[in-house]
């Protein structure tokens, strides 16, 4: 009887069993973490991020449209607050050194992860995957071209060769993504996997934490966005068939 009343009260206020479970995990994770053992802090992760992740994967559908909008708005604000805070911490702590230093790799790594996920997710939500892929690939091409020009600005031959090898493939892929999304999608995923092995981005067993973070940094910057775009392009092409 009391259980039924409680259930209807939760329903009335739009609180789902998933929300209550998540809240309990965060609360107990925090409480047990500070009173018994640090390991209990691990409970906070599934509580805080589990429901959002499952909703994104389409496993659970427990929110109505107003709740979804509130959740999106909250996530965006959390992204802004987290990003600004991390940037301030990273810059303030290494202000006098003019270098991030190895101990700041994790902080900047979180920042890069946030920016990459935000950028890719915004592009794919707002534009059609083909247009998003075009913009991301074109952006990649421009970034590489800038690097090449900065490092070989006074060597015309090296500039042309490296520009053609590094930047031009991105521009070509950007234009072809609109015409052949499936082919370019598969090529992007393949290129991302190839880049992981070519640049030795899989950390060996027992590698030092700094080296692992360094490799993750490169994965986030290069193969991950390309692979996500490739999968989105391929998925879009399959849906259209």
């Amino acid at each position: 009887m009391a259980g039924g009343k409680l259930k209807s009260l939760f329903e009335r206020w739009g609180i789902s069993p998933i929300g209550i479970t998540a809240l309990a995990l965060v609360f107990f994770g925090f409480f047990l973490g500070i009173t018994i053992h640090m390991a209990f802090f691990l409970l906070i992760a599934p509580g805080a991020f589990g429901p959002g992740l499952l909703r994104q994967l389409g496993v659970i559908e427990d929110l109505d449209e107003c709740q979804k909008q509130a959740s999106i708005q909250a996530a965006h604000r959390a992204y802004l607050a987290g990003g600004i805070f991390l940037t301030c911490v990273t810059v303030a702590r290494s202000w006098t050194r003019l270098s991030l230093g190895e101990d700041f790799v994790p902080a900047s790594l979180v920042l890069i992860l946030m920016l990459v996920v935000y950028g890719v997710s915004y592009c794919l939500s707002f534009w059609d995957p083909r247009q998003a892929a075009f913009l991301v690939l074109f952006g990649f091409g421009l970034i590489w071209l800038t690097f090449v020009v900065l490092s070989h600005g006074n060597e015309p031959i090296a500039l042309m060769v490296e520009g053609a090898l590094v930047a031009v493939p991105f521009f070509i892929a950007a234009f072809l993504a609109k015409r052949w999304p499936r082919v370019i999608g598969v090529l992007l995923v393949a290129a991302s996997i190839a880049a992981v092995f070519f640049f030795h981005l899989v950390p060996p067993a027992g590698a030092e934490a700094d080296k692992v973070f360094g490799k993750i940094f490169v994965i986030l910057m290069l193969p991950l966005p390309l692979a996500l775009m490739g999968l989105a392009l391929f998925g879009k092409a399959l849906k259209q068939e």
Partner: peptide, 14 residues
Amino acid sequence: VTRQTIISIEKGKY
């Protein structure tokens, strides 16, 4: 939808 959504719509908040 939830009751809260109806409240938000009536208030012009959503």
